[in-house]
Design a protein around this nucleic acid. Structure first.
Lengths: 198, 198
DNA sequence: TTCATAAGTAAACAAACATTTACTTACTTT
DNA sequence: AAAGTAAGTAAATGTTTGTTTACTTATGAA
């Protein structure tokens, strides 16, 4: 039996992300993707059931999975609170700086119902990537280091500003110069930390 | 001359927002919209140049414009810092609670390149709705009440958590009960305020 | 009351869409 | 070396897309 060409599978994923980042999810078509990847449309259907399947796998494996792995690098639930949060922020910033196209699809996770649903279902099923962070926050809350809030609230306060800053970081095309420097990013991180401390 | 039927124009906008919220921007078609609004496809083209024009006007006028007006209600740049931020948060929460479909399109403003571009251009051209908030922050920074950060950083820290919480607020379909109560929302607001104070 | 005119409609347009059919190619196993 | 098989292709499928054409309707001005 002829083996699958893994390069082609990777090309599909890479170029799909590129089209989504540059033209938007609503402008990705199977034929455009096939042409850009220099393959036949049929080849996509060997690797993915249909368009929905491709998008969900792209989002869950290539974007969410890689991101979650990246932000937990060198992170330990037993870290000091400020240190732990700084590590998560640094990891996220570094990862997306190097994966701009992944960031674009990530943003669709909050808007597109299809991806949003996949995001929620993954969180429930997959044992929750958030678990180490959950433990980290729980421990610090119990120890009286930080305010007691629902997990959803911690997530909103701790991570959404980082995403917004990364979004701004990518926006410096039309600006005279980069506003979101490492310094600004870490200043913001400290402000967020301070806000949660008791 | 026969006058435009404003009810039809409103139906187009309302139902377009509804489809986007329920099925996603990528599943909104002109014919689906026309059928749902009980009009001919041609009628949409009397009121809007094309699909892009419709989407941008929907986003800018119906969503961004209404939101900006709503959050500045009873806000004054000379307010005390904590009081001002609380007012902005309360206004945003109230507005989106009452306009769930607008919130859905708002979320696409960060992902869809078309809307994202419209968002940026509006900010530059339109005299900037953010101006009163800009002055508010500038004054408090100069007075030494809060840390000095770029405007983009203030935006990220101050507003993105509110959006995330509102998003969570709408998610309680599959949950036993509402997690994001008024209490949690205002606790988060206070944490964000504390983080920025010097 | 008539008439000019833009609003509105139903039906159609080519182009683009997701997906499939019929076929060829390349590699593993025997 | 031959055969079996899944990977891969080119071209076509029927459907849906955004938009337009040709026509009808309703209304304010004369």
């Amino acid at each position: 039996m002829r083996p699958k060409n893994l390069e082609k599978e990777e090309a599909i994923r890479t170029i799909a992300l590129q089209i989504i980042a540059e033209e938007g999810l609503e402008n990705l078509s199977m034929q455009k993707l096939a042409k850009a990847a220099n393959i036949s449309p049929r080849t996509i259907y060997i690797k993915y059931e249909n368009k929905e399947d491709l998008l969900i796998k792209l989002f869950v494996d290539e974007v969410l999975g890689a991101y979650e792995k990246a932000i937990l690098e060198k992170f330990d639930p037993d870290m000091d609170f400020a240190e732990g949060v700084k590590r998560l922020w640094t990891n996220a910033f570094r990862y997306f700086k190097n994966n701009r196209h992944a960031f674009a699809l990530m943003q669709y996770g909050k808007s597109s119902p299809l991806l949003h649903k996949a995001y929620q279902e993954r969180d429930i099923k997959e044992g929750d990537y958030f678990a180490p962070i959950h433990r980290f926050l729980e421990r610090n809350a119990k120890a009286g280091v930080i305010k007691k809030l629902p997990q959803e609230a911690y997530r909103a306060i701790l991570f959404s500003p980082a995403f917004d800053l990364i979004n701004e970081y990518f926006e410096f095309q039309d600006r005279p110069k980069q506003v979101i420097t490492d310094k600004v990013f870490s200043d913001c991180c400290e402000a967020v930390i301070k806000g949660l401390l008791k």
